[in-house]
Each structure stands twice: as C-alpha cells, then as structure tokens.
Design a binder for these strands. Structure first.
Lengths: 211, 211
DNA sequence: ACCTGAACACCGTTCAAGT
DNA sequence: ACCTGAACACCGTTCAAGT
C-alpha cells in the first residue's frame, strides 16, 4: 500500500465548501476541516497561508461555476443572453447559499476579468455606448449580487425568517405571499426576474444597433 | 463621589458600534469592548445573552436612524418621497459601512414594521395596486440593501479594491472611472441613483392615480 | 440588578521535527 | 514538499461571589 498522494489545494477548497454548506462560514473550524480530510489540524498551512486565503479560494471556486452554467449564448439576442448570464450567476450563488454573505465583503467577483469582458461585449452588442459600459455593467452586477445576497445571506433559515417578517406586516397582500416558505421562495424568484428585466430595460437602449 | 450609575443597553450598543466602525465586526472582542467601557470583559453578560444579541441590537440601532434622516415627506410626490427614503436608507447604512455586511445575514430590516408600512403607503399613493405591494416593496428593499451592501461591504478598503478590479479590466471606459477612489465613490452614487430611478420607473405605474 | 475574577473549552497560528 | 504534534496567545461563555 503506497502512501496516499499529496492533496491539492483544490481538495481543501472542495472540502471546505462542502463543510461550509453544512455549518456556515462561521462554523468552519481548522481542526474539524483537517479531521474531515483525515489530516491534522495544521496540515492546511502547507497549502494556505491563513483562513482568509482559503475563504478567497472558496469564493473564487463558487464563482468559477458561472461560465459553466452559462454555456453557449451565440443563438440569443444580446439582451436575452445578459438575462441568461444573470440567472446563471444567481443560480451558481444559490447552490452555496451559506458562502454568499462573504461575497460582497471580498468584493472580488471572480479573480479573472473574463466575466466582465463577456458581459461588456454583450452590453455593447445590445447597443450600450462605450462610455456607459462601466455604469451599465456595475448596475447589472450590483443588482445580481445585491439581490441574491439580500435573498440568500440568511441561509439556511432565510426563507422562514423573511416569511415571519412579512407576516408581521399584517396587511392582506403580505399575508398572501408569506403563507409558506415555498411561496416566499417563489416570490423571491419572481421579483428577481421582474427587477432584472426592469434593470435591463433601463440601461439598454430601446432598439439594438443594426448589425 | 457616588457610584457611577448603572449602564444601559444603549450604552453598550453605542460603544460597540463605535468600536466596530474602527476595527470591523470580526475585530470586536468582548474583552476590549469591556475595557473600553471601563468594565470587566464579562460585564456585558448582564445586558446581553451573547454576542449575537448585541449584534442584532447594533443593526437595529443603525437602521433606527433611517426615519430620522427621512423626516417630513408630505410635500413630495409619492415617487420623490420613495426615492428620498431610498437615499436616506443608503446614507444611514453608509454611516457605518463596517456593520453593513451583517445586514443581509440578519435579514431584519429593522425590528419594527414601521418602515414597511410607510413605504407601502407611498407605493399605494404612487398607484401600485394592492396585490402588487409585496413585489414592489421587495424589489425596492432588495435594490437598496443589495446595492449598498455590494458597494460598502468591503469597507474600509472597498473603494480601492473596486478601483483595482476595474483597472484590471483594461479597457478605456473602465480606466476612466477607476483613476482615483474618489472617482469610484462618485461612480457608485451615480449608478445607485440611476438604478433607483430605473427600479421606481419599472415598478410604479406611468401616471399616478387621481386624488 | 449589575458587576468582578477565576476558570473552562476552544480556536487560529507558529514552530520544530519527521518523512 | 507535505504533514504531525506540542505549544502559545486569545477568545466566548459560565459561574460563584461580591455590592
């Protein structure tokens, strides 16, 4: 029986993400993470300088899923493609809701600029003038990240907590959407989609440029 | 010299907020907070069950500033009043940027429903139909909280971090807005204001109801 | 009721040592 | 290069005791 091959950085990141999905970011312990991987609690220092470096790697790994989810958008209109990218970004974050709160703090929407370039190209194709690109891009990113954080950051009790909050409002329309957590979840996605179309409509010109 | 009067919960909350403004939420220590107030590090347990309870009180205190900033809106159109409330909410959060990251996690936009009722009344006055109130309210709240968290959560280095990120994009329009942190800050507020008008325009009917 | 001080269990990090 | 185990400083929380 040969010695087990040395573990990779990615092994630690994957284990840490799975671990955080269970107990939340604040629940992660160097010692438990080591034990889970069959190592001592100091083994991790061979791969990461400190906890912050591991956390950054976790965030980047979650964000790296977005391009995979997006896939090929060449058949779509620029506006549809942008909406699709937005939904995929939200979906990628929603897969690991307990890591979501760290995203705005890290303020690194991916360690590469690939996503920015991709979105920029779509915005240009949709007719956004060059000088307006940073505003349009930031509005879109802030909307996606912001609303997703707003919806999921309280995981795993986010749905029940918002349900109770809306219940306390005490008026009939809020009662309707706060009967069950399933209804809250449905409402969240509905509002996200509506707001997304509103944002796209507000920052994209009415008619795309002639090709 | 009589004994110093017993401290209130609000004294601890105020000291904790000031403390968090300096070192961030993760930097807060039970012991240092006690020392700062001239008490032992366990005195706080006479007023708060645990750290989470103090944090919740801190958030509620920050949010309680919003109504004070809003003031009287009776002279404004409903839409202008909503925009004003949105700006005040952002301003109240921006006053304590290092507490902002905890806001979506707590998922409690104030412990009272007063703000929801106030916003609801304005939305109704602006012509939003009753059944649409939860969607319109949530879109607005998610936009305000979400974008503000997105902009400020990385404090105190949030401006420089975003500046470097935009700089890495490498295209001319992003270069323009990332020359200085002051320019980034200006850009943040500009995009917030534009997006706010877009959201209001998208969720409010075109013409307000006749009075 | 409010506060103190000792004590406890736990945690991130360092470091010398092993292979 | 990768990992171990002891050690260190620190932290949140508990609790018996003081006023």
């Amino acid at each position: 029986m040969g010695r087990r091959p040395a573990l990779q950085r990615s092994d630690f990141v994957a284990a840490a993400i799975e671990y955080a999905d269970e107990v939340g970011l604040d629940g992660i312990t160097w010692r438990t993470l080591g034990t889970r991987m069959g190592l001592s609690h100091t083994a991790i220092y061979s791969h990461f300088r400190d906890k912050d470096e591991l956390l950054a790697a976790m965030i980047n790994t979650v964000l790296a899923n977005i391009p995979d989810l997006v896939g090929d958008v060449s058949g779509m209109t620029p506006r549809d493609a942008l909406a699709h990218v937005a939904r995929c970004a939200r979906a990628a974050l929603a897969q690991h809701p307990r890591i979501v709160p760290a995203l705005p703090v890290a303020n690194s929407f991916g360690e590469s600029t690939a996503l920015v370039h991709r979105a920029s190209a779509l915005l240009v194709a949709a007719g956004v003038p060059e000088h307006d690109l940073p505003s349009a891009y930031q509005a879109l990113e802030a909307y996606i990240v912001g609303t997703t954080v707003h919806d999921f950051a309280g995981a795993p009790n986010h749905l029940e907590r918002r349900r109770l909050r809306y219940r306390l409002v005490g008026t009939e329309p809020f009662d309707v959407v706060s009967r069950t957590t399933a209804e809250i979840a449905r409402h969240n996605e509905l509002v996200f989609e509506r707001g997304l179309q509103v944002i796209l409509g507000g920052f994209l010109p009415l008619s795309p440029p002639a090709t």
